[in-house]
Nucleic acid binder design. Structure first.
Length: 115
DNA sequence: GTTCTAACA
DNA sequence: TGTTAGCA
């Protein structure tokens, strides 16, 4: 299928699909016209990418661990390995650090407004 | 009409 | 990521 078809079937813009390719997340074939050709497998692949992005992973991490993704009935799951475990733990720590920073800012704002 | 690359009022 | 330009 062409990029337009994949875009419609996944709800992801053609711009984003090309970007994912630039980031090494997708490697579509090219026909004689230079048009990208995708297969059914790419549909689940895009879904996995979206799920991983939504979970806070950057494209570099997704590129490294996309093959660990498993699409099941209830959603996408990652097959854990020590390396991936470390990556996700580090991400979790950054997220918690940000949460604390936001909380402190909220408290300062509260003190500022007397609330 | 669709895709491609490149670039940004 | 959107959008637009100029092609094929």
């Amino acid at each position: 299928m062409l990029i337009g078809d994949l875009s419609r079937r996944t709800g992801v813009s053609t711009r984003a699909l090309r970007h994912y390719e630039d980031q090494g997340l997708l490697r579509p074939e090219r026909d004689t016209s230079g048009y990208r050709r995708y297969d059914e497998h790419d549909i689940t692949r895009v879904a996995q990418i979206r799920t991983m992005l939504a979970a806070g992973m950057n494209t570099a991490a997704i590129c490294r661990f996309l093959d660990c993704a498993r699409s099941e009935e209830d959603g996408v799951r990652l097959e854990m390995c020590p390396d991936l475990r470390a990556q996700l733990d580090a991400l979790q720590e950054r997220l918690e650090s940000e949460s604390r920073r936001i909380r402190v800012t909220q408290e300062r704002l509260g003190a500022l407004t007397g609330c």
